[in-house]
């Protein structure tokens, strides 16, 4: 598959990017890692007349730690997330999810900004970012605006990005002290596959009272966007830690998601797997012994 011709624009600053976006609107697409965009162009699903090359813009790269937050540039590649020493404690959940993406080659090309702007319901970085309370900084000639990631992801392939904007960075507040977390991804095979169901969990506990404090759960591939499982979270938050409670919350999560049937799996199977994986993920994050599963 070859690509149809297009004009390649090489802006030298963010301001240039914004001006090109204003000038060309939806005739132009921004190029980051290209792992989704170029496939869509090869398959003729989109045929942009122009590509705006973001890759040389160093202001979109790198992970910066401020006192209470982490700022991750949109062009940060998955492999950079895996390697970053900044992604420690609760933030490490994002690095863990990055290792589950595609293959090493894909992770050397693909970026966090691209993963979010492509807005697949199965995007691997989204569930961890949702439980980490990520916001995205959107930038244009008019300035910057920050919105919660949850509001940014509006549907399959759809985001709150305006035509004149780019996603500039992802901002993570400090995760709660003592965060316990995990990310589980179920595919049809171990690698090079999209998630059938993915689960990110981040919890804090009160070890003396043996209760859950904060409970955050996010699900991928089982709704039009990656979602928080808020009813299940509420069911556990503040309550005693126990197998029965976890199982019941997992059932609630399975009820509150809205999976669909596609080539990869049926809606019923996905719902059943949400139940299994939420239970397993919460238990795993707490260090309960669970049987080896290979996922």
């Amino acid at each position: 598959m070859r690509l149809k011709p297009f004009e390649f624009l090489n802006p030298s600053s963010l301001e240039d990017v914004f001006e090109l976006l204003v000038r060309y609107g939806n005739e132009a697409k921004c190029l980051a890692g290209g792992t989704d965009l170029l496939v869509q162009m090869k398959q003729r699903r989109i045929l942009p007349k122009r590509l705006i090359n973001l890759l040389p813009l160093s202001e979109l790269k790198g992970i910066h730690k401020a006192e209470d937050s982490l700022r991750i540039g949109a062009l940060t590649r998955h492999v950079d997330l895996e390697r970053s020493a900044f992604l420690e404690k609760g933030w490490n959940l994002l690095a863990l999810a990055a290792t589950k993406i595609g293959s090493p080659q894909i992770r050397h090309l693909g970026t966090i900004g691209g993963n979010l702007c492509n807005a697949s319901p199965s995007a691997d970085t989204a569930p961890p970012l949702l439980v980490l309370h990520a916001t995205v900084c959107l930038s244009s000639l008019k300035g910057n605006r920050q919105i919660p990631l949850e509001a940014f992801l509006t549907g399959p392939g759809q985001t709150g990005l305006r035509e004149d904007e780019i996603l500039k960075e992802v901002i993570l507040p400090k995760p709660p002290e003592g965060s316990l977390f995990t990310y589980l991804k179920l595919g049809r095979r171990k690698s090079m596959d999209l998630a059938l169901v993915s689960v990110a969990v981040l919890v804090t506990i009160n070890p003396e009272r043996k209760t859950f404090e904060q409970v955050r759960l996010a699900l991928g591939s089982v709704a039009p966007t990656p979602i928080r499982a808020r009813a299940a979270e509420k069911q556990l938050g503040g309550n005693l830690i126990g197998e029965e409670a976890i199982r019941e919350a997992a059932e609630t999560a399975a009820q509150e998601c809205q999976p669909m049937t596609d080539l990869r799996a049926t809606a019923e199977y996905r719902r059943e797997m949400v139940k299994v994986l939420v239970e397993r993920a919460v238990k795993q994050s707490l260090g309960f012994p669970i049987p080896p599963t290979g996922i």
Partner: peptide, 27 residues
Amino acid sequence: CGIGECGSCTVLLDGEPILSCMTLAVA
């Protein structure tokens, strides 16, 4: 495959593995 799933177009770019069929030469 042409869509980044098989790895047969792998080359090293500045020492790191990438897929050359998913990479624009100009980029």
